[in-house]
């Protein structure tokens, strides 16, 4: 009896002394996203770049940046019933990422997502959001800039430029309010020799380098994918529809029916021309972000509010 009890006790001890188990969690990787600006945004548009002979110099760009977004599925696919999206894959554990920041893309911003599980994350994008409780000024921005974007109505971007032609000078001061401007950008992709490459493949123990660029030129295009950059309609918005003070504002653009804009297709993404020139320019902000060297990001269908 005592011997049996002894064996029992030893068995109990052996069970109690179990060792900690192995961890099946995979090794982790990293993706670094740099945010910059196109050469035209930085250097300006000369008279040959613009179809109507204007020269444009970008004087101020501020983006109220929330975060990069990386996920397993594209924005639209997320609504597919039964589609399981892992809360681990494409998530990251690093917190040193530069997010919730107002910055000038000409000065740049770096957000690094560290500690990501390896795998394919086909949907890469980013979100602009009006300044919130976590927002700080980043490169090229001040607290006053943050306050300006946060002021009612809150905005996701400010864009200012100076255009001149034959001795005439016009200022541009645009405020892209949060309610009507695209703010979520998804499905960033780039053409490769074998087709379109979307998103990023996270590899264990490696850091992928990716980049976004702000393309100021997109705002001056005469169509979504239009080849021509024009400033005449902008000047006309101030002179013929606005207050003629030599400063083109979003109010001036909103006073111009899209049907009254001359010199190019100027159609909305829906194919319609119902709306204002302001609606068109706000739409163009959705196509003003490039991905890697030659790729692009698209405005999320659910992003326009």
């Amino acid at each position: 009896m005592v011997r049996r009890l002894g064996f029992g006790c030893v068995a109990l001890l052996a069970a109690a002394a179990a060792c900690i188990p192995d961890d099946d969690a995979p090794r982790l990787g990293s993706v670094a996203f740099t945010f910059g600006a196109s050469r035209l945004t930085t250097a300006g548009f000369n008279a040959r770049t613009m179809a109507d002979g204007w020269t444009v110099t970008v004087t101020r760009v501020l983006l109220s940046y929330d975060s990069v977004t990386v996920s397993e599925t594209t924005d639209g696919d997320a609504s597919i019933p039964g589609l399981v999206i892992s809360d681990r894959k494409c998530a990251y554990r690093g917190r040193g990422a530069r997010r919730h920041v107002v910055f000038d893309p000409r000065f740049g911003n770096l957000q690094t997502l560290n500690g990501m599980e390896p795998g394919e994350c086909p949907d890469v994008g980013f979100v602009l959001e009006a300044p919130g409780v976590d927002t700080e000024p980043g490169l090229g921005a001040t607290g006053a800039d943050v306050a300006e974007l946060a002021a009612d109505p809150p905005a996701v971007a400010l864009f200012e430029a100076r255009a001149s032609r034959r001795g005439k000078s016009v200022e541009v001061k645009l405020r892209f309010d949060r309610a009507r401007s695209p703010s979520a950008f998804t499905a960033c992709q780039v053409a490769t020799g074998v087709g379109l490459s979307r998103g990023v493949v996270v590899r264990a123990g490696e850091r992928q380098q990716l980049s976004f660029q702000f393309l100021a030129e997109s705002l001056f295009r005469d169509d979504i994918g239009g080849a021509f950059l024009r400033f005449d309609p902008w000047e006309r918005a101030d002179v013929s529809f606005g207050d003629g003070d030599g400063v083109v504002t979003m109010s001036d653009l909103d006073a111009v029916p899209l049907t009254a804009v001359r010199g190019g297709p100027y159609t909305l993404a829906s194919g319609s021309r119902r709306g204002t020139f302001g609606d068109f320019v706000r739409q163009q902000l959705g196509y003003a972000f490039g991905y890697l060297d030659t790729g692009f990001c698209s405005p999320s269908a659910s992003a326009s509010r």
Binding site: G94, N114, G205
Partner: peptide, 10 residues
């Protein structure tokens, strides 16, 4: 922590 498993300083 392996390289890139978290922020570099961490």
């Amino acid at each position: 922590l392996e390289r890139f498993a978290d922020d570099d300083d961490v």
